[in-house]
């Protein structure tokens, strides 16, 4: 019982630590690729401490409630994802619930930004939601392929099945889905070339434009957790999860660095270019995977 409670308390903190570490790593590696020295790895932590102590503006109650909802949603998703052998909420709904709880984060940001009444926020949210529609099409196809292939909606069972038959990404139909997931991962994380919704140079960082101080702190934490969630989901579904947290972390690290290389080297796409890309190659691959799996099943 104590161990279980400890899991509930510690796991989100570990996830947060990994997410923040990834944020720092992203800045450092991007800097090195761009021939710069880069900030110290703990720079995001320093920033977050400053955000905590800096004053901020509020545009009304929804401005705060939306963000709280968003952050809470992200933390709850973390509790549903197996991390190595740790999974506090495995028995309460599976992948479908994860899919729906994941909605809370963008919805919360959208609600909160909505009250900001700033033109940049409106444009940013509109872009964010359109982009989400763009990557949800291949993402849903990928998840459906996995669920149909293993005939379960529980992530734990997907991980267990891979323990016997090897990684999903190494088997043929799921290989296509895995590649498709990798192709949309930058869009899900809001990395270049898909950072249209928070583009600082075009729309003053979009939904974040009115956030300062603690609001920005929560948005940063939410982003850190988003990094953890999307990559952990990939590792669980396609790279066989892991027996212990260390292996799991190493797998996540490899995937993240892969995404970072794309992030550091590419310029930003326009929103309709992004949609066109997302609905072309990743969707085609994911669809092919789903068709093969469905035919193989029947």
């Amino acid at each position: 019982m104590v161990g279980r409670i400890l899991q509930f308390v510690l796991y989100p903190l570990v996830a947060l630590a990994i997410g923040v570490f990834f944020l720092g790593l992203a800045r450092k590696i991007t800097a090195r690729i761009q021939w710069r020295y880069g900030p110290p790895l703990v720079q995001p932590v320093i920033d977050m401490i400053r955000f905590f102590y800096q004053k901020s503006v509020s545009h009304g109650p929804v401005f705060a409630v939306g963000l709280i909802m968003s952050l809470a949603g992200s933390i709850v998703v973390v509790l549903f994802l197996p991390f190595g052998s740790i999974c506090p909420l495995s028995g309460s709904g599976g992948l479908l619930v994860v899919l729906y709880v994941m909605l809370l984060a963008p919805m919360g940001i959208a609600l909160s930004g909505g009250q900001g009444a700033n033109p940049n926020i409106s444009i940013g949210i509109s872009r964010k939601l359109i982009l989400a529609l763009g990557y949800e099409v291949p993402f849903l196809l990928v998840l459906l392929t996995v669920m149909t292939h293993y005939n379960t909606i529980s992530i734990v069972q997907v991980v267990e099945a891979q323990r016997d038959i090897g990684w999903s990404i190494a088997s043929l139909p799921l290989f296509l889905s895995g590649v498709s997931y990798l192709l949309i991962l930058p869009a899900m994380l809001g990395f270049r070339p898909f950072d249209v919704s928070t583009a600082p140079q075009e729309i003053s960082s979009g939904p974040l434009v009115e956030y300062g101080g603690k609001y920005l702190l929560m948005a940063t934490i939410e982003h850190a957790l988003l990094l953890f969630i999307d990559i952990a989901l990939f590792v669980n579904l396609f790279l066989g999860g892991a027996g212990n947290p260390i292996t799991f972390f190493v797998k996540m690290l490899i995937v993240f660095v892969l995404v970072l290389f794309i992030h550091a080297a590419f310029p930003r796409l326009r929103i309709e270019q992004a949609i066109r890309y997302l609905w072309k190659w990743p969707t085609a691959l994911a669809l092919a995977g789903l068709i093969i799996v469905t035919i193989g099943r029947s």
Binding site: Q34, Y37, G38, P39, Q43, E210
Partner: peptide
């Protein structure tokens, strides 16, 4: 802020809005 002098090593980065800046 770019490769030659790289202000980011001192934690100085440009942001887009005064709400986030100090």
């Amino acid at each position: 802020i770019t490769a030659r002098w790289d202000a980011e090593r001192f934690g100085v980065i440009p942001v887009a809005t005064p709400r986030q800046a100090n």
